[in-house]
Design a protein around this nucleic acid. Structure first.
Lengths: 353, 353
DNA sequence: TTGTACGCGTTATCAC
DNA sequence: GTGATAACGCGTACAA
C-alpha cells in the first residue's frame, strides 16, 4: 500500500492524497473526506523512509547516556526517571526515541563514532556528559540540534542544556546543616568529571565560606555517586570526626549510612546527613533522609521539548534552563525522637531485628 | 555527499562505490582501496533513509516496555539491567534501539497504535507484557519479527520468547524454606497479569504440595512487585501468623521486611524471607536477602540476539529460551549469629542507630 | 570487473 | 483545487 494505491481507490491523484495526509490547504472538504475514508479503511500510513528521504526529517530524537555501565546503575532510578520524562515529552510531540547506552569504558571512541555517524535522528538529548568523554569534543560538530541534561563542562555557551542550580542547592543543603549547629561538615562528592559533581562541591565550599567555617580538605572524599564510594568514603572520613555529611547523591548517602551504622554512630545525633536527588530510597531509608529534591522527570521532559522546538524552528539559539530544587527535611538531620530512645551503647551497634 | 560524489572523486561509477560499501565481491582490490580512501577522507556514510527505502531494512530494533509508569519504577533496577543487556547485544550486531515506554494506563490504546503503526523498526523486543494490555491481542498481527522477554500469556506457542523457569525457581525457593522447618509459608505475589507472577505462585503451590503442606489462601497476598504491596501485604498476612515469606520480587521483600521490623518480628528467627531477582538491594538489605538470582542482562542480550537472528534469517520459527536461575542463600533465611545476639524484646523493636 | 538504467514511496514544483 | 513530473539517494538486475 502506497500513496498511489490510495489515490486510485479514492479516485484522485497521488499529490492530493499527500496533501490530505500533510494537512495542506487547498483541498476541498469533499475530497479530503473521501481520501481520509480510504486511508482509514486501508489502515494506511506513509512510508517513513521515503518521507525521510525527501524531507530530511525522521521524527526520531536520540537519547545518549554515555556513562559506562556503573554510572547507569549506581543511581538506579535517576536514569529511568529521566528517560521516562523524555519519553513522555517525545510521545506528546509525536517523536520516537533512539536510545544510546554507553558500554564499557574502552569502547568510548567506538561508541562516539557510532552515535555521530548515525543519521537517523533529527536531534539529540545527551545526559550527564563526563568531561573526559570523547563525545564532548565533538559537541560543536553535530549537524543536528542538541540539548544536554546537566551542563557540559565545555562549549556550554554554544549549546542548549537543562539542569538545576546545583551550586545554590548545595549551599542550601549545607547551610541547613550549619543552622543545626554542625561545624565539621564532611562532603562525599559525585563524579568530578560531571559538572553536577563539581558544582555541588563548589556550593559546599561557598556555604562554609559564608558561615566563616574554614575549608578542610580532610573532610572531603572524592566519590562517584556510588553506594560503594559512600560507604568507603564515610569510613575514611570518620578519622576526621565529622558531625555532619553532605552527600552529592542519595545513593552515596545510603552507603555512608551503612558505614556509620557499622561504626556505631547515631544519625542524626552524632552525624547528620543530607543527600541529593530525593530518590525512593531516601524516603525508605532508616532514618528517612533529608535531601535536595530535583525534578528529574521534568529535566528530561524539558530537554526533549526544547530539543524538538529547536528541530522545528520554534526556538533558536542556545537556551539554558535552570529548574528549581527543594530541600526536603527528614529525620537524618532532625531527630523525630527524644535522645533517650536511641540505642547507642559505647561504640557497640545494636543489631536490627 | 552521496554515492555519486564519491564515485566522481574516485573515478568510478556509483554502483562500484555501492559494491565496495556493501562488501560485495567482484571489485578489484585496487579500485576498492581507491574508493575506500575517498570514503574515509570525506567521512562519508550512506543515507539510511534512501537505503531503507530500497532494502526495507532500517537496522533498528524496537524495545517496548508497555507497563505503566509504576511498573517501570517499582523494580527500579530490573528494567535498566534488561535495557543494558539489550543495548549491548544490539550494539554488537550494529543495530540501533528505538525505545517505547508505556505511559499512563488510559493511554494504552494510543500507545499500542503508535507502536504498531511505526514502520521504522526491523523487529521488536517486548518486555513483561501484561495479559490485559491491548498490545497482546495484536501479537500475531505484527509484520516484523518479535521476541518477548518473559513469556506472554497468549499466543506463546507462535512467538519467540526468552525467560527463566519461574515455576522451578519458585519451587526451589519455597523448598528451601520448607527444608528449614518452616510450615506456615506466606507468599506475596507479583502482578498476576504477568506470567512471571503467575508462575511463581504456581511454583509456590507445587512446592507446598510436594511437601504435603496444605495450601492456605489466607497466606497469599496478591501484590504487584512493588515495595508498597510488600509492606501492606506483610502487614495483612501477619494475622495468619506466617513463619516464612516467599516474595515474588526483591522489592516486595524489602517492603515486607519493613513491615516485620515495625511489628517487632525478627528475620529470620520469626519469619524467614526469600525474594526473587537478586537486585542490589537484596545484597544491601538488613539482613541480606536470600533470593533467586535471575540473569536479567542475559535475558535482554539473548532476546536481542535471537531477534536479530530472526530478522537476518539466521534462525526461523518460534524459539523458546529458558535461562537458569540460582538460589542465593543469605541471612534472611539462615541467621549468621547465634540467637542470643539478637535484640528482640517482647514485641518492641529496637531502633537502629 | 565495471557501468547503465530503473524503481523504491514520498514531497515539492510546476502547470492547468 | 487538482494533477503530472522531477527530485531525494540508494540497491540491483542487466548489459557490456
Amino acid at each position: 500500500m502506497n500513496l498511489e494505491d490510495i489515490a486510485k481507490k479514492a479516485g484522485v491523484s497521488r499529490s492530493t492524497v499527500s496533501r490530505v495526509i500533510n494537512k495542506e490547504p487547498y483541498v476541498s472538504e469533499k475530497t479530503r473526506q473521501r481520501v481520509l475514508a480510504v486511508i482509514e479503511q486501508e489502515g494506511f500510513s506513509p512510508n517513513p523512509a521515503a518521507r525521510a528521504l525527501v524531507t530530511q526529517r525522521t521524527f526520531i530524537i536520540g537519547v545518549v547516556i554515555p556513562g559506562n555501565i556503573d554510572v547507569f546503575f549506581t543511581d538506579n532510578s535517576y536514569y529511568p526517571m529521566l528517560l521516562q520524562g523524555i519519553a513522555v515529552a517525545a510521545h506528546e510531540r509525536d517523536f520516537a526515541l533512539l536510545l544510546w547506552l554507553g558500554q564499557s569504558h574502552d569502547d568510548r571512541d567506538h561508541f562516539t563514532r557510532k552515535v555521530l555517524g548515525n543519521r537517523q535522528m533529527d536531534g539529540l538529548v545527551i545526559a550527564s556528559l563526563q568531561s573526559d568523554h570523547p563525545l564532548i569534543v565533538s559537541l560543536p560538530d553535530f549537524k543536528v540540534p542538541l540539548v544536554t541534561v546537566d551542563r557540559p563542562e565545555m562549549f556550554y555557551e554554544q549549546i542548549s542544556y537543562v539542569t538545576v542550580d546545583n551550586v545554590r542547592a548545595a549551599i542550601e543543603a549545607v547551610s541547613h546543616l550549619i543552622s543545626l549547629g554542625r561545624r565539621r561538615i564532611a562532603h562525599i562528592t559525585g563524579h568530578l568529571t560531571i559538572t553536577d559533581g563539581q558544582d555541588r562541591l563548589l556550593g559546599y565550599r561557598r556555604a562554609l565560606e559564608q558561615a566563616g567555617i574554614p575549608f578542610d580538605p580532610l573532610l572531603v572524599h572524592e566519590g562517584n555517586f556510588s553506594y560503594e564510594q559512600g560507604y568507603e568514603g564515610m569510613k575514611r572520613l570518620l578519622a576526621s570526626q565529622p558531625d555532619a555529611l553532605f552527600a552529592a547523591g542519595d545513593t552515596i548517602a545510603m552507603g555512608a549510612l551503612q558505614a556509620l551504622r557499622e561504626a556505631g554512630l547515631r544519625v542524626p545525633e552524632d552525624v547528620a546527613i543530607v543527600g541529593f536527588d530525593d530518590l525512593d530510597e531516601a524516603f525508605e531509608s532508616k532514618p528517612p533522609l533529608t535531601t535536595v529534591r530535583q525534578p528529574v522527570q521534568q529535566k528530561g521532559a524539558q530537554a526533549a521539548h526544547l530539543l524538538i522546538d529547536l528541530i522545528e524552528g520554534k526556538r533558536v539559539g542556545p537556551h539554558h534552563v535552570l529548574l528549581p530544587t527543594e530541600l526536603i527535611v527528614r529525620q537524618s538531620t532532625i531527630s523525630a525522637h527524644p535522645p533517650f530512645q536511641t540505642q547507642y551503647k559505647g561504640g557497640e551497634v545494636q543489631q536490627q531485628v
